[in-house]
Nucleic acid binder design. Structure first.
Lengths: 242, 242
DNA sequence: ACGCTTTTTGTCACTTTAACAAGAAGATAC
DNA sequence: GTATCTTCTTGTTAAAGTGACAAAAAGCGT
């Protein structure tokens, strides 16, 4: 079947990043404007090819995060999303893209004067609705990234990655509301998240003030999974009667 | 930074499969004995390189499933697990492996006389405990695959992929017990899975008989996620009192 | 018919949840 | 300085869900 002289095809390997953040209570993703063909001038995910054949995938993701978004990977949540390798996804030839999902706390506009100058935060609604066309299959990748984030909010402390090192419970609630696109009762949310062991650690004697009563501050605890989980509402629970 | 003549490195791209099934109430994974160096004679995941640069990743996974395991991909659950691309994982050079998780119903030993002859089902315990050494980083990949399956059992109808087209609720319970490594109460399990909308569809007027009372048969329903989920026990829920 | 096994239905104390009321702690207006 | 506004925090309560176990049902073998 496979004769001994056959040698497997060599592939171009790209790393692309879905970087999510919250801005004004809405979920945003970082996009760059492509400077070269194909899809020149089109919006696309930040990313690029491996630097050399010694660079690991995660290392490449961290490098792109720094180069294209001016973000420090050691401060962010960064996890692999998946590999996208349809034969026809890139007109230049066979490119397989390994994608990573990054979560960043509230951030200013990408710094001008850096390589990140071409980058801008875009509300995700505009992308999933198809208003803003994207290069390659990047719309699918973003949709997968959002779904990953939505799902992990239920069972992991991922929401804290959207927050500053210390945060209030209503900060956290805004994350859940923005990512899930729902409204939650602040009073039940307040107790529910605190009841999860090792999810939140209180930062004693610190309070943040805005308008109303000052709120307690918390830090992310050591939990890696939430027990019990924070269930996503509306997601059709059991109907009774009918 | 990147000068115009620079061209990105070309990479060897492999596809590897974690194929799980239940045999005698224990979880097994399909392994092959490597016929070539490196790791000749060592146990490894079935897999191989892309056939040509027109073959999609999923297509390659399906092909390997057929060639190396003699399994029909259209009958199986098959999903991407992840990309493994540490620079040092393959001594031959830079190989990035895109892995897939497949779930198969109870199956006979791999058919002799086919390309799958070198393949054999191995209990996963022997692998996670390190008794049975594996080629490359395949032990890590298997561990990730098992964890994926364990987790998806809670929130998706994945367990039905371990079963025949029609199955009883205690068949289903055996899947949960084997994959999670726990004991479940048959009576509570019986009602819990039936309460989840669209998880199980009863097959009327059919019953399977073994020893005791004949059991109702079911088919997998249209649900893609389970609401409410089937929670994994022991996983440290809230402690009260203390 | 009797006992054996497995499936299916019942029951009940207990916990968790959602919905809403109300109190607490500041800032601001008057 | 007191009233009012806002937001955070604690209480309360009816309803729903959960886990543990009893018991009935439906076959098979003797």
């Amino acid at each position: 079947m496979t004769d001994d002289t056959w040698s497997p095809p060599r592939i171009l390997l790209a790393v692309d990043l879905v970087i999510l953040t919250l801005r004004e209570t809405r979920l945003h993703v970082l996009l760059v404007e492509r400077g070269i063909d194909p899809y020149r001038g089109c919006a696309a995910l930040p990313g690029g090819f491996l630097n050399n054949d010694r660079e690991g995938l995660l290392a490449a993701a961290r490098r792109e995060l720094d180069e294209e978004a001016d973000l420090d990977a050691t401060q962010l949540h960064l996890e692999q999303l998946g590999a996208y390798g349809d034969a026809s996804r890139d007109p230049r030839g066979r490119v397989v893209s390994v994608t990573y999902l990054a979560i960043a706390p509230r951030l200013p506009e990408p710094t001008a004067g850096t390589d990140a100058a071409r980058a801008a935060w875009r509300p995700v609604d505009a992308i999933v609705s198809g208003e803003l066309p994207l290069a390659f299959d990047h719309d699918v990748i973003i949709a997968d990234g959002i779904e990953r984030a939505r799902s992990k909010l239920e069972h992991t402390p991922l929401a804290t990655a959207f927050c500053e090192p210390t945060f209030t419970i209503s900060d956290l609630q805004q994350v859940y509301e923005a990512v899930w696109g729902v409204d939650l009762d602040p009073r039940n949310f307040y107790r529910k998240v605190q009841k999860v062991p090792d999810f939140l650690l209180p930062v004693d004697s610190e309070r943040r003030v805005t308008k109303g009563r000052p709120a307690r501050l918390f830090t992310a605890g050591p939990a890696t999974t939430l027990h019990p989980p924070i269930p996503r509402p509306g997601h059709t629970v059991s109907r009774q009667g009918e």
